[in-house]
């Protein structure tokens, strides 16, 4: 049973067509990698799924049109982690993480979920932010800040995580940490992940499926190893991606 179904998705910005005719689905346990060159429409697809961009086509959650879903209900289903976070004020780590519980008690008089405090505490612990919970987010490094927003989305406890290049600008240590956390998060039944990825090696290592985009059009959707074949990548990127990556890897055998 598909949890998310996207049919014939198109996104336009003025007269520019960023995405056209894209269809895919996500099942529980899937980690779908959305890949393609710059300007392929990857971020537009995830923004449309998150209802943050105007689109045509149909996006459904267990058969229900997501356009009709209220924002706090949507946030219980989808959590979004973007690549950039420019926080303007000196909130503490814990205050930012706690906001992840908003969707579960959105009104002024909404009762708090019984396990709300425990989820905030667990999200802080899982992301290694226990010691930093009272620290201002303005004083954190890029990797620490990304972990704070990962903790927020863990506290939010959605069924589907949408990640827009989650480890962009992060060094390898943080990349490894964040992907390990995501793998661990995905172990729970009923959960799935969609990631926009530039790093094809990471896409192969962690993805179960892939959606390959080429100038806003679908160029392949299915199991990750089938979609990211040498032929498909050659066609979309206009170069021998597979050969180039093998050559890069061979350099490490000489070190």
């Amino acid at each position: 049973m598909n949890m998310l179904d996207v049919q014939d998705l198109s996104v336009r910005y003025g007269r520019t067509e960023a995405v056209a005719g894209v269809s895919f689905h996500v099942r529980p346990g899937d980690w779908l990698m959305i890949v393609g060159p710059n300007g392929a429409g990857k971020s537009s697809v995830v923004r449309a799924v998150a209802q943050a961009a105007a689109y045509t086509g149909r996006i459904t959650w267990n058969g229900e049109d997501l356009r009709a879903v209220r924002p706090h209900v949507l946030a219980r289903r989808l959590g979004v982690l973007s690549q950039n976070h420019a926080v303007g004020y000196s909130f503490t780590v814990e205050q930012v993480v706690r906001l992840g519980r908003y969707a579960w008690s959105p009104g002024l008089f909404s009762p708090q979920a019984a396990d709300g405090e425990a989820r905030v505490a667990r999200a802080l612990a899982d992301t290694g932010l226990t010691e930093l919970r009272g620290k201002s987010v303005l004083a954190l490094s890029g990797g620490e800040l990304q972990r704070v927003f990962l903790a927020q989305v863990f506290a939010q406890d959605p069924a589907l995580l949408i990640l827009d290049e989650p480890t962009n600008h992060l060094d390898m240590v943080y990349q490894k940490q964040i992907f390990a956390l995501l793998e661990q998060w995905l172990q729970q039944p009923g959960r799935a992940v969609i990631s926009v990825m530039h790093d094809l090696s990471m896409a192969l290592a962690h993805g179960t499926g892939a959606l390959l985009l080429d100038r806003g059009r679908p160029a392949g959707f299915g199991p990750v190893r089938e979609v990211l074949s040498a032929e498909n990548l050659q066609r979309v990127y206009g170069m021998d991606v597979s050969g180039w990556m093998r050559a890069q890897l061979a350099l490490w055998q000489e070190v």
């Binding site: 946030a75 979004v80 982690l81 976070h85 906001l99």
Partner: peptide, 15 residues
């Protein structure tokens, strides 16, 4: 609070 952290973040948490 959510807006002060960022409009996209506010949308993401369900505002």
């Amino acid at each position: 609070n959510a807006f002060a952290i960022g409009e996209d973040n506010a949308r993401s948490v369900g505002v």
